[in-house]
Design a protein around this nucleic acid. Structure first.
Lengths: 157, 157
DNA sequence: AGCGGATTGATGACATGTCAACCAGATGGC
DNA sequence: GCCATCTGGTTGACATGTCATCAATCCGCT
């Protein structure tokens, strides 16, 4: 830390570009999703993960891990979604402490209605703007960073 | 929207990788910054933008635009930072409605103390994991997306 | 000069996320 | 079997972000 290696020009541009894209893309996708389907991104993510699961249901901890959410956050968010009728909570047969979230019919209807538009927005604002090489690079690089962050130091310090 | 063009395998992987990286990188950088310097990312961004400005001060609206924040968010955040002594508000001579945020000595000290460690973390968890080609690709692609999102449809809808 | 609409920033109510307890049930050593 | 400990999930207090609204001021026009 004594002699910090600052970012050179190109690195600087890449880093700032990343952050700016991140923010703008997020705003845009969230706005589209809310306008077209009445869902927030977190709502959509929960519903989407659930709908991809064989039985339309998951243990809370399992879902939290997949989404990289704290259990607390998930619990709070699910109670809100439950009040809107998108999901229900069930007891877990295998573990008396556990709970299972399940998609309701209405929840399923909501994701299915939202998905095409959301995918189209992701294409329009990101994927279709990239060359095949860039998509490949993005795939490679993001996974490398993810592996780095989940690998050795997964146990935090 | 009738026949949605779903993402193919590679696109899917790139998109999911991006989202996962986004989340993990954010958590990691935020944790490091808080632990080492007692600042949140938003704190750091505000201080950093101010410190790069000639006079260490900016109009609120100017700062909000640069950061892509709502004015409301900025105003709330600044009152919190002000209470911690990192910034002050001043009246704007040129415009009676306006306000100007200025870095305090303590605020300056805080960014300068935080910057080397933060840059090192950005390197360690992202930049230094990428090849030169990937950095160039990231630079190009993010700016293209940013231009797309800020360009024609800047007036939303 | 003076009216009317736009802009600036502040504010309060509310939605969302985080953090630190907390409880109930599981698990493991003895 | 029984106690100590760990885990899964919930909860409440609090930090943060959003949205609608408001007052002050500015600007363009007559």
């Amino acid at each position: 830390m004594e002699q910090p290696r600052w970012l050179d020009e190109r690195e600087q541009r890449a880093w700032r570009g990343y952050r700016r894209m991140r923010r703008l893309l997020d705003l845009e996708l969230a706005r589209d999703l809310m306008r077209d389907a009445g869902l927030s991104e977190p709502d959509y993510d929960v519903l989407s993960d659930l709908s991809e699961t064989p039985d339309q249901r998951l243990r809370l901890s399992e879902l939290a891990d997949r989404m990289l959410w704290s259990r607390s956050r998930l619990s709070h968010h699910l109670t809100r979604m439950q009040q809107r009728g998108l999901v229900t909570r069930e007891e877990c047969a295998a573990d008396g402490r556990g709970a299972v979230v399940a998609l309701t019919a209405e929840g399923r209807r909501a994701v299915e209605a939202a998905a095409p538009g959301h995918v189209a927005a992701v294409r329009r604002h990101l994927i279709d703007l990239l060359t095949a090489d860039e998509i490949a690079a993005l795939d490679a690089l993001t996974h490398r960073v993810v592996d780095h962050l989940t690998g050795p130091g997964d146990a935090r310090r």
